[in-house]
Amino acid sequence: MRANDPGPDTTLTSAASELRMATFRLARRLRAQRAVDSMSDGQFAVLAALTIHGEHTLGQLAERERVTAPSMNRTVSLLEDAGYVTRTPHEDDRRKVTIALTDAGRTVVDETVRRRDAWLEEALDGLTPAERQTLAAAAEIMRKVAER
């Protein structure tokens, strides 16, 4: 560091740290609102991905969730045993299987989303209109940051 260099912007560092901590706390509170208490976040993430993006091969799911294929295989096996997903042979490559959501899996996703939205709506109801407006603006900014 040079003599005239003020060093890192401590205000920016502090703001980043505060935002990170608040985001993680909120995410943790939202994750606690789930339809199946025994389901892990990783298992729910697979169900959500299948809901949003449709059928996947095991490799595609592993890549999407940034885990190894053996780890994803264990997750899918647990979801399959619980009746939330099915495996069917891939149409073009018999060495692969296609993972699809069952009606029970879709119900878990829908109910979890409903619970999370209800929890957040109740939390927002306790804020002032100005605070809710600030959060709406922050949500747009956070979306922009996440897309970088």
Rank of each mutant, 00 (worst) to 15 (best):
E65Y: 04
R87K: 15
L124V: 03
D41V: 06
A130V: 13
E147D: 14
S14K: 03
L47N: 02
N4F: 08
S77C: 14
A69G: 08
R116K: 09
D5N: 11
L124D: 06
D125R: 01
D125A: 13
V109R: 03
L78K: 06
H53I: 02
R114S: 12
L61W: 00
V108D: 00
T102Y: 04
T68F: 01
P70K: 02
R132Q: 15
E131F: 02
Q33P: 02
S40F: 09
D110M: 05
A35Q: 05
H53R: 10
R114I: 05
L12A: 15
I141V: 12
R115K: 05
N4Q: 13
I52M: 08
R87A: 06
V36P: 02
G7I: 03
A137V: 08
V108W: 00
D93F: 07
Y84K: 04
G83N: 02
L26K: 06
D103R: 05
R29C: 12
M21K: 10
D103K: 07
R143I: 14
A100N: 14
P129V: 01
L101V: 00
V97T: 15
L135Q: 03
A35D: 07
V76Q: 01
A3H: 10
T23E: 09
E18A: 15
T68G: 14
L78V: 10
L61N: 01
L58T: 06
A3E: 13
E140D: 14
K144G: 10
V76P: 00
L127E: 10
R28P: 01
D93I: 04
N4S: 13
P89D: 10
L50T: 01
